Every structure is written in structure tokens, then in C-alpha cells.
Amino acid sequence: MSNQSTITIYHNPACGTSRNTLGLIRNSGAEPRVIEYLLTPPTRDELVGLIAGMGIAVRDLLRKKGTPYADLGLDNLALTDDQLLDAMMDHPILVNRPIVVTPLGVKLCRPSEVVLDILPQPQNGAFTKEDGEKVVDEQGKRLF
């Protein structure tokens, strides 16, 4: 059975963590719906739903490195959730990634192996991250 319609990844192909997460999803036999969120950002309502599904604060989804985070003064703790969401809507690069949605939950998959907690199917074999770190053995078992 294909899990194509039941798993979604908000993906940035330029991000190694995102590529590793996508690889782990595919290693479970699933072909997810891949949304390159920089090209097709989630709507405000979708983003609010993802944040609620993850059970995190809006601020916890902000990406600082390689973004206009500092230039926009987003480290100001007086900013409201609405102001932070406005910034993410205006600058999708501020949305940390990858975010994965499965029938078992929604997670910001940093590090990439966090996705293993919400995949409906087990791994089909070994998986090694791009940096050479082995995270799944030949039998599909987590190594940590």
C-alpha cells in the first residue's frame, strides 16, 4: 500500500537535513507529497495548523541561520505570534525545515532521524545520512 497521500514533507532541496529526512521517508517505502515550501509556501492558516500540530510556540519554528532573522529584529521577545507569523509569510526562508506530516503526527525533523518517530511503516534497510552517519542498520532498526 502506498503512503503517498498520507505523508507530506515541507522540503528545501538545498538543505541536507531536509534531504536526509526525505531519504528516511522513502526508505520506509513511502513516496510523500513533497512541498518545496520556498516555491509554494504554506498559507497562514496552514502554517498555524502545522505549529499547533507540532505543539510548539510560533517562535520555535523560526530559522535564524541564513535568514533575515537578525535584520528584521525577530529576536525581540516583545513581538507577538501574529508579528512572527507575518514575518514568516513575508519571508518563507524563516520557516525552519523540514516539517513532516504523517498519520502519526507532525514534527520539525531536526535532526532528520526525528522523522522515524512518526513514520507509519518501518525502515526497509540501512540508511546513512549524507555526512556518513549511520542511523538505521541493515535490518531497518534505529542505531540510537
Rank of each mutant, 00 (worst) to 15 (best):
80 T>W: 04
131 D>G: 02
100 V>Y: 07
138 E>M: 10
101 V>M: 05
95 V>E: 11
46 E>N: 10
26 R>G: 03
62 L>I: 08
81 D>M: 05
56 I>R: 10
142 R>C: 06
51 I>Q: 00
71 D>L: 10
32 P>E: 06
6 T>K: 13
89 M>F: 13
127 F>M: 14
33 R>K: 13
137 D>Q: 00
114 V>C: 13
60 D>K: 12
89 M>N: 09
39 L>R: 12
28 S>G: 09
16 G>Y: 12
134 K>F: 12
77 L>C: 14
67 T>G: 05
76 N>E: 03
72 L>I: 02
47 L>Y: 00
142 R>H: 11
57 A>H: 10
129 K>W: 07
79 L>H: 05
123 Q>Y: 02
1 M>Y: 13
61 L>F: 00
136 V>T: 04
114 V>L: 10
52 A>E: 10
99 I>Y: 01
26 R>E: 12
97 R>F: 04
24 L>H: 03
144 F>T: 13
141 K>C: 14
142 R>A: 14
139 Q>L: 11
123 Q>L: 01
115 V>T: 02
34 V>N: 03
62 L>R: 06
36 E>T: 13
114 V>P: 11
3 N>F: 11
17 T>Y: 00
117 D>T: 07
133 E>V: 14
86 D>K: 09
10 Y>I: 00
29 G>R: 01
128 T>N: 12
80 T>Q: 12
120 P>W: 01
43 T>F: 07
37 Y>G: 04
123 Q>D: 04
137 D>Y: 02
41 P>V: 06
95 V>P: 08
39 L>W: 15
82 D>N: 14
67 T>S: 07
113 E>H: 14
37 Y>A: 06
73 G>Y: 04
5 S>E: 15
54 M>D: 03
115 V>F: 00
23 G>I: 05
126 A>H: 04
22 L>W: 05
53 G>S: 02
129 K>G: 02
100 V>W: 05
13 P>R: 10
111 P>H: 08
109 C>E: 02
35 I>S: 05
121 Q>A: 15
79 L>I: 09
26 R>M: 10
120 P>S: 06
134 K>S: 09
85 L>I: 13
101 V>C: 09
63 R>W: 04
79 L>T: 05
82 D>L: 06
44 R>T: 00
54 M>I: 00
123 Q>V: 01
111 P>N: 10
9 I>M: 08
36 E>L: 15
126 A>C: 12
55 G>K: 02
128 T>H: 12
109 C>V: 01
62 L>F: 08
127 F>T: 07
27 N>Y: 10
121 Q>V: 13
124 N>K: 15
134 K>P: 13
123 Q>R: 07
88 M>E: 05
30 A>M: 10
65 K>P: 13
130 E>V: 08
101 V>R: 08
62 L>C: 08
136 V>R: 03
144 F>P: 09
93 I>L: 15
75 D>P: 10
33 R>S: 12
